[in-house]
């Protein structure tokens, strides 16, 4: 399949290994990525907090750029960030709700010759994996099952709430997809208190203690549940859970050392890519448990 691909900002900045691992994994899943490189940040909820219209217009522009790719053969728009998913979805809800409002926004876009038509399909890589590629196909592509690897899912708020706007329901349990993917890849899903909670990132500059306390607690809960690592579809969660982990450890007063993987990295490991190819060396918390595991399984192939 071909997707109009919105990588987000953080995946090209502080978590470059996410963008890299997505690019490495995509061809193995037969996904062709057409990057929306002229698009702008979704605003992560912060621009909307400042001005709703500004966020709606910026994202309408991104959708319009994606729709140009869709008319040229892309199947849908794909993102790799829970926060992009949620923030863009929130704008889309307003844009799709009213033709009158949409016309006002398109008026601003018309300077650039762009127009957003309602009803774009924009899915996070996690949703694409389960709904477009399908777990059966994914299973058939696994070269190195994640046997004995104990993985805790961490979703990020924006991709699991609010459930009605995100179309999460019994028939489409998008809030269980990470567990399904981990299982399909052969790993063990770890159940722990923080999997669907907030990493605390949005208040890191406003109330640092409370922010780090959140990250620290979830990491500690996962440690107590004996997870080898966490996996997340959200690079912003990754910032608070990995980049800030040393500070979070201080805040909760215990050692953590919990590796946090990006979703494409976990998929890539199971599809046979080496930790190095997937950029695992760039994490703040060394994913030692994961690397040991990969070496035990393939006897050191891949080189670290």
């Amino acid at each position: 399949m071909k997707v109009a691909y919105w990588p987000g900002c953080v995946s090209r900045g502080f978590t470059a290994e996410l963008h890299g691992s997505m690019a490495a994994v995509a061809p193995m899943l037969e996904i062709e990525l057409v990057e929306l490189d002229r698009a702008s940040c979704c605003g992560a909820g912060v621009i909307a907090e400042h001005s709703q219209e500004l966020a709606d217009t910026l994202n309408a522009r991104t959708f319009a750029l994606a729709q140009q790719e869709i008319t040229q053969g892309a199947d849908l728009m794909m993102n790799i960030c829970s926060t992009c998913q949620g923030a863009q979805n929130e704008c889309q809800q307003r844009l799709d709700a009213s033709a009158e409002y949409r016309a006002q926004i398109n008026e601003t876009l018309s300077d650039e010759g762009l127009e957003y038509q309602d009803g774009i399909i924009n899915k996070n890589f996690l949703w694409v994996l389960v709904e477009e590629i399908g777990l059966e196909k994914l299973r058939s592509l696994v070269r190195r099952p994640l046997t004995d690897l104990r993985v805790g899912p961490f979703y990020g708020c924006y991709i699991v709430r609010p459930t009605d706007r995100l179309d999460i329901n019994r028939a489409q349990p998008r809030d269980e997809y990470l567990g399904q993917v981990i299982e399909t890849l052969g790993g063990t899903v770890i159940d722990y208190a923080g999997s669907h909670k907030c990493c605390g990132f949005p208040i890191i500059t406003m109330n640092k203690e409370a922010s780090l306390e959140q990250a620290g607690r979830h990491l500690a809960d996962a440690t107590d549940a004996q997870a080898d690592c966490l996996v997340t579809p959200c690079p912003l969660c990754h910032l608070n859970l990995d980049l800030q982990q040393p500070m979070a450890a201080k805040q909760v007063g215990r050692e953590l050392n919990m590796p946090v993987l990006h979703l494409p990295q976990l998929v890539g490991l199971a599809l046979g890519l080496s930790p190095k190819e997937l950029g695992l060396a760039h994490h703040i918390v060394k994913p030692t448990a994961v690397i040991d595991w990969s070496q035990a399984v393939v006897g050191g192939v891949g080189g670290w």
Partner: peptide, 8 residues
Amino acid sequence: YDCTHCFK
């Protein structure tokens, strides 16, 4: 400013 925007 202490709200973490979690939608809960």
